[in-house]
């Protein structure tokens, strides 16, 4: 079959599959909250800025974590901001038949979200700030330790 005759046949086949609910394409965008501008983060001065100043500059974070707990229960904290602005194409294939069950989907969405994190010492003075993917920013967190033997 020539390429010129194959194109309408392919289109008709795709149309038939679409009408049967077997194939669909999607262009989608998902946004979640607003990104912290890098310039605003660069204005923060580790060793000088404190918790109050950083909250005033960046607003409320999404999560707060305990950080560097001392034997006297003094502790610092880590604040995390996260946002999402993704768009991409996706294709979904599925079977409406009882004999051939299942579905397959494919999309170009990322698997990790951007964010930024600020670390404060027990005196609530800014120690460090970093922008990156949330999975990397939280890499220092450990899963809870196992219960000790009785």
């Amino acid at each position: 079959m020539s390429r010129r005759r194959a194109a309408p046949a392919t289109a008709a086949g795709a149309l038939a599959l679409a009408l049967a609910g077997c194939i669909s394409g999607e262009y989608a965008r998902a946004t979640f909250d607003e990104p912290i501008p890098a310039a605003r983060l660069e204005q923060l001065q580790p060793g000088q800025d404190d918790l109050g100043g950083c909250l005033a500059a960046l607003g409320a974070p999404h999560r707060v974590f305990e950080y560097r707990v001392g034997p006297d229960l003094s502790a610092g904290m880590a604040l995390l901001w996260v946002w999402r602005a993704q768009r991409g194409f996706g294709v979904e294939l599925s079977s409406p038949s009882d004999e051939v069950r299942g579905s397959l989907s494919f999309d170009l969405d990322g698997i990790d979200l951007p964010g930024c994190m600020l670390w404060f010492g027990p005196d609530l003075r800014l120690e460090a700030c970093r922008m990156g993917l949330v999975g990397e920013l939280l890499a220092w967190r450990r899963r809870p330790a196992a219960v000790p033997e009785p």
Partner: peptide, 18 residues
């Protein structure tokens, strides 16, 4: 039909008190 277009927009209010 064959192609769909979707948009999802989420915004939040947040308050942390220490």
């Amino acid at each position: 039909g064959i192609v769909n277009f979707a948009n999802q927009d989420t915004r939040s209010d947040r308050l942390w008190v220490f």
